[in-house]
Simulated scan of single mutants.
Amino acid sequence: MSEQPPGRTPDQPDDENAENDPYGTPPPSPGEQPYGQPDNQQPYGQPPYGQPGAQPPPYGQPGAQPPPYGQPGGQQPYGQQPYGQPGAQPPPYGQPPYGQPGGQSPYGGMPMAPSPVGGYAGPPFRVGDAIGYAWQKFTSNWSSWVLMGLVLLAVNVVFSLATGGFQQFQDALSGDASAMPSVGVGGYLVQVLGVVVSYVVTAFYTRGALDETRGAKPRLGDFFRITNVGNVILAAFLVGVATGVGILLCVIPGLIVAVLTVFVYQLTLDREVNAIDAIKGSFDLVKGNVGTVVLLMLALVGINLVGALLCGVGLLVTIPMSYIATTYAYRMLSGQHAA
Rank of each mutant, 00 (worst) to 15 (best):
V157S: 06
Y205V: 04
A162C: 14
A299T: 13
P101L: 06
V146K: 00
N228C: 08
G254E: 12
G103E: 08
A177N: 08
F237A: 13
G302N: 09
Q71C: 05
Y323G: 01
E19P: 00
F159M: 09
P43G: 05
V195S: 13
G70A: 05
A236W: 01
Y78N: 08
N40H: 15
V117C: 04
G103M: 08
L309W: 08
L316N: 04
Q4T: 12
A236D: 05
Q33Y: 15
V286H: 02
Q136C: 03
A299S: 13
G7D: 10
V259F: 11
Q85R: 11
V127L: 07
P253Y: 10
T326W: 00
C311Q: 04
F263Q: 08
E272V: 05
G73Y: 04
F204R: 06
P66T: 08
A329H: 01
R126M: 11
P86L: 12
A209C: 08
S115R: 05
Q104L: 12
A329G: 09
P56Q: 04
M332F: 00
T327Q: 02
P72A: 14
A203G: 15
G314W: 11
A299N: 01
S29H: 13
R126K: 13
P13V: 14
V229W: 06
P47D: 12
D15Y: 14
P43E: 05
Y323A: 01
Y199L: 00
G109M: 09
Q4S: 13
P62A: 06
Y35V: 15
P97R: 07
F125N: 00
V313D: 10
S174D: 14
Q100V: 02
G122V: 11
V245F: 08
W142L: 03
L152Y: 02
T261K: 06
Q42C: 13
E16C: 02
P56I: 07
Q71G: 03
D284Y: 03
A64C: 07
A134K: 03
G103S: 13
P96M: 05
G45Y: 09
V293D: 01
E3S: 08
D222H: 15
P320L: 03
L316E: 05
